[in-house]
């Protein structure tokens, strides 16, 4: 069993992922299934444990296909687990009936990458944002409009009455993402899953959105599960971060620890690859060989071993466990080292 055992301090965890797995079956023809007699799986999430503390921003980073989105969807019950447990506010999601899960959803909201795709083009912005209230607080119908105005002001869409009557195509991309944030926050969630929320925004808009998310987190006591492939962005919002490689956690610690003292060779390569906006600090480190392998038949032992500069025989045979090598700093590598 690989996992993060940081429960000793009796902390208040809002979200506990316990050895979660998600295997997607590969679609094959019926004939294949009969004659080969075996279904292949994409091991999108393969035995991951994370405890998210109430009030923190926990980042999940890694390259495309590493399983970030799938973990996010599993965390809020949008996807069924292959194995493991997801515990939200002390409740095992699997123990809930559909209706109960739907009720709980108001406490776990989502912000996706593309605000245009997540807003109904034929609904005014005000109506879109009000939907959550209609579902979760129908009894407070007389207060809905005031609540919408208030949340528009909080996300910086002022004057609120001007924006409420607009349609998505009439505002900019950055403003649209503010509407999506408003819609997520209006049901007063405890946990916000943000899946690449600023990936489509221009640099200057990105800076504004990140700042807004930091402000709102304080004001509404939110916990963020912040998914990103951009480590530089994660630095400005996340307290802790988990680095994923092919459905496995390679390293977990505070952002500062991971960025300043990375221990996993993959984390090191990933950090080195991120360009720095300073021409006097150009990268000199070489990049790892090869490309990310196929998640259907991931490499034996440590999944990074075919590309790892430190790989030994042990690495190709034995899967390294995620271990706490320094207080609060977890690494899954046989040769984890500082420097």
């Amino acid at each position: 069993m690989s996992g993060m055992d940081d429960r000793k301090t009796n902390e208040d965890f809002i979200l506990e992922l316990q050895n979660i797995k998600k295997y997607f079956p590969i679609q094959k023809t019926l004939l294949d299934q009969i004659f080969v007699g075996r279904i292949d799986y994409v091991r999108a999430v393969d035995d991951i444990s994370i405890n998210v503390r109430r009030g923190e921003a926990f980042g999940l980073a890694g390259e495309s296909g590493s399983g970030k989105t799938t973990i996010g969807r599993l965390s809020i019950g949008l996807e069924e687990l292959t194995e493991g447990k997801v515990i939200f506010n002390g409740t095992d999601l699997a123990s809930l009936k559909k209706e109960e899960l739907r009720k709980l959803r108001q406490k776990m909201q989502v912000i996706f990458q593309d605000p245009m795709a997540s807003l109904n083009p034929r609904m005014t912005l005000g109506t879109s944002v009000m939907q959550g209230l209609l579902i979760h607080y129908p009894e407070k119908a007389d207060q809905h409009r005031d609540m919408v105005v208030s949340i528009f002001e909080k996300v910086g869409l002022t004057p609120a009455n001007f924006y409420i009557n607009k349609y998505p195509h009439q505002i900019s991309g950055g403003q649209r993402q503010r509407v999506v944030i408003a819609r997520a926050l209006i049901t007063r969630p405890d946990l916000v899953l943000a899946d690449e929320p600023v990936a489509m925004a221009d640099v200057s808009v990105r800076a504004l959105l990140l700042d807004l998310m930091v402000q709102l987190k304080k004001e509404f006591n939110l916990t963020y599960l912040f998914i990103t492939h951009d480590l530089a962005t994660a630095k400005y919002i996340c307290d802790r971060i988990g680095i994923l490689y092919l459905g496995k956690l390679a390293e977990v610690a505070t952002v500062q620890e991971v960025y300043q003292k990375p221990m996993h060779p993959y984390t090191k390569a990933l950090l080195a690859a991120v360009p720095v906006p300073n021409p006097r600090k150009r990268r000199t480190e070489p990049m790892p060989e090869g490309e990310i392998p196929n998640p259907i038949n991931p490499p034996s032992g440590c999944r990074f071993h075919p590309r790892c500069p430190l790989a030994s025989e042990e690495c190709s045979m034995i899967e390294p466990k995620l271990e706490e090598l320094e207080p609060g700093h977890f690494v899954a590598c046989h040769h984890a080292q500082l420097g």
Binding site: Q175, A207, L208, A232, K235, V276, P277, K281
Partner: peptide, 24 residues
């Protein structure tokens, strides 16, 4: 000036605040 000051930097030795460019 504004554009360069709003670029996130992964290094910890730099300013932690990003410039917030007003307007659209």
């Amino acid at each position: 000036q504004g554009l360069l000051a709003s670029v996130p930097n992964i290094r910890f030795d730099t300013k932690e605040q990003l410039y917030k460019m007003p307007g659209e």
